[in-house]
Simulated scan of single mutants.
Amino acid sequence: MESSKNPNTKTSQFELMVQFMTSHSDLAKGYLKSPEARQKSKQLWLNLSANLNAEGPPQRDVVGWKKVWADFKVHTKAKLRKNRINISATGSGPPKYYSLNALEEKVIELVDLNQAVDGMQRSLCFGVAHETNSNSQLEDYTESVGASVVGIENADEEFETLKQV
């Protein structure tokens, strides 16, 4: 259905898409993955594409409208990420700000893009100790982690085990 020239999606089509996704948040977030949910997702996309095509040119098939939705989310997330980076940047002059329109703000809230850009707040950091050959780094690691872990009675034995590895 889509021409090779790839015409621009109208604002009214974006508004209709965001309104539809607001009422079907599982579809917007991509949570419909089970076999029954895939059928529901397919039907919802068929309904949405029919409504969007009725709104006027451009006309697209379901795959085309899915790409429009994915691209819209990606570009909105990119703006949000650039704004976060520019706010925390150091240097001369004021930070550059990419303005977000009302539709982009709704998408940010709907799909929770703030969490995607900023990360989960109040979460613990977990990691794997880096393997090193330096005994002093192993000692520092054992003293800071091994001896403070509840249940380790003999930190010296744990240290000797780590040294052998």
Rank of each mutant, 00 (worst) to 15 (best):
K77P: 08
T142I: 05
V128Q: 15
P7L: 03
W45L: 09
I85K: 06
T90Q: 07
S148L: 13
S136G: 04
K82I: 00
S34L: 08
T90L: 01
K67D: 06
E143Y: 10
A78P: 02
S3F: 08
N154Q: 15
Q13T: 09
K82M: 05
L113E: 08
E139Q: 12
R84F: 06
K73P: 02
V145T: 13
S12W: 01
H75L: 09
W45R: 05
E158V: 15
E158F: 05
F14T: 09
S136Q: 12
K73N: 07
E104W: 04
E143I: 13
E139R: 07
S99K: 15
E153P: 11
W65N: 00
K73Y: 03
P7G: 02
R38I: 05
G64R: 09
E105I: 02
A147E: 15
V150R: 15
S25D: 07
P95M: 01
L46W: 05
I85L: 05
N8W: 01
L27S: 04
Y31P: 00
A102V: 13
V149H: 11
G64S: 07
Q121F: 03
M17C: 10
Q19T: 10
M17A: 14
Q121H: 07
F126N: 05
V68H: 00
E131F: 03
E139W: 06
N86F: 00
V62P: 01
V111L: 07
Q19E: 12
G91R: 04
F14L: 14
K66D: 01
A129K: 13
V62R: 06
S148Q: 15
P7H: 04
V62T: 14
L110C: 01
I108H: 05
A129E: 10
K5R: 15
V145R: 13
S92L: 03
D71Q: 11
N135C: 04
A28H: 02
E105G: 01
V111S: 02
T90M: 04
S88Y: 00
T22C: 06
Q19H: 06
A89M: 08
E153A: 11
K163W: 07
S136F: 07
F20E: 03
T76R: 05
V68K: 02
S134L: 15
M120A: 14
V165G: 00
S34K: 15
G91P: 00
S34F: 05
R38L: 05
T90Y: 00
Q164Y: 10
L48D: 12
D71C: 09
L52A: 07
E2P: 01
